[in-house]
Simulated assay, not measured.
Amino acid sequence: MQLLVFHYHDRPGGVREVIGRGLPLLMERLDGVNEVVFLMGELRDAGWREALTARLKRQSPSVTVRWVEDREWGYAEPGFRSLSADSVQRLRDWLHPSPTARWSVLWAHNLSVGRNIPLLRALPRLCKDAGAELWLHHHDWWWDGRWQRWRDWLAAGVASLEEALAATVPVGPQLRHYAVNLADLPFLQTAAGDAARWVGNPLPAFRPPQEAEVREARLWLAARTGGRPVWLAPVRALRRKNLAEALLLTRRLAPDACLVTTGGSSAEEAAGWNRLRTAATAKGWPLAPQVLAGMEASAPSVPALMAASEAVMITSLQEGFGLPWLEAAALGRPV
C-alpha cells in the first residue's frame, strides 16, 4: 500500500504534531504500508523530517519514505486561480499506485482552511481518476473567523457560498472526512453522511521533562527575560492567537512578569505583529517574542519551557484542537 500525506508545509504547529504523532499509529492499523510519500508545498525543517523518517523506518524497516515539494501545493498567493499543468502531472504521477503497491490513500490535512483553493478543488477529481482514496482531515475551517478567505474563493472563480461549501466538503465513493472536533461532526455528516467520522487528536503517553531539563529551561528563559517571572504563550505569532490580549492580561495579573511567545510569525502577519512589539517596547512592557523561531532543535522543549514558567497563556480566538491546554494540565501549570 502507498500512503501519501499532504500538508501545506513542514513548519511547527498543531497539524504537524498530528501528522508526526498520528502517522505511526495509522501505519499500525493499515495493512501492508510499504511506501510513505509526503506531498508538501514547502519543506523547511530538515531536522523534523529526518526524525520522523527515522521513526517510521524503526517501526517498519522495509518502508520507503519520500518527501516531495511543490510550491504550488503550499499557501496560495492572492489571485492564484489554477495549478500549472506540470504541478497537476506531478500529482497524477504520485497518486497512481507504485508497482509494489496495491492501492493508494492520500491523507490530506487542513485543506478546509482554504489556503489553496485550486488544490482543494483539483484533488478529489485527480484521486478519482487515479483510483486513489482521499481522506480529508479537517482541523480548521476557512469561515471560522477567517472570512477574509472569501476573497480567495471569488478570485478562484467561485460565485456562491453553496459552491464553496461543496468544494470544501466534496463527496464521492473514494472520499472520507475526519474532524478533530466532535462539534464539527454533525455538520460534516449533513454534507457527507456516513463518510464523515470524528478522530480525536493522537496523544501519546506524556513524558514530563526531567528536573534537569526544567532547570536548564529556567536558565535559558532567564537569559532572555532578565530573570523576570515568565508567563508563556506556547503559540505562533499569528493574529488568531490573540497575543495582544495575552500581553494585556499579563500586565494586569502579573505586572512584573514577562510574556514569552514561542513560535514565529507569517509573512502576511509580520506587520501587525511588529506593531504589537513596538507598542510593548514604547510602554516598557516586558515581551520576549518568538524565542523558538528557527532554533527548535537546540532550544529547550516546549514542555520544559511550560514547566519552567509561572503560568501558561492561551488566548486564541480559534483553535482546531489546542494541545497546549492538555500539556499545561499534565504539567500542573495554571492556564
Rank of each mutant, 00 (worst) to 15 (best):
A270E: 15
A328D: 09
A311H: 08
L323R: 11
L276T: 00
A293H: 11
Q318A: 14
A308G: 10
V291Q: 07
P286W: 00
I314W: 10
A329L: 14
A297K: 10
G264R: 01
A271N: 00
L305P: 06
S265L: 02
V291C: 07
G294E: 15
V312G: 04
A308F: 11
S266K: 01
G320L: 00
T281F: 00
I314C: 13
T281L: 05
A328F: 12
R277V: 13
A267R: 11
G320W: 02
G264Y: 04
E269C: 05
P324V: 07
A282V: 07
A311L: 10
L305T: 06
G320P: 08
A311V: 12
L305F: 10
M306S: 04
A304H: 11
A311D: 04
M306R: 01
A329D: 10
M295D: 12
E319H: 05
P286H: 00
A329Q: 12
R275V: 08
G320Q: 03
E310K: 01
L323T: 09
E310R: 07
R275S: 08
R277L: 15
T315F: 00
G284M: 04
G322P: 13
E268I: 05
M295Y: 03
E327C: 14
L292Y: 07
M295E: 13
A280S: 07
T262H: 03
P324F: 09
L326R: 09
E268Y: 04
A282W: 02
I314D: 04
E327P: 11
G263A: 12
S301M: 15
P303N: 11
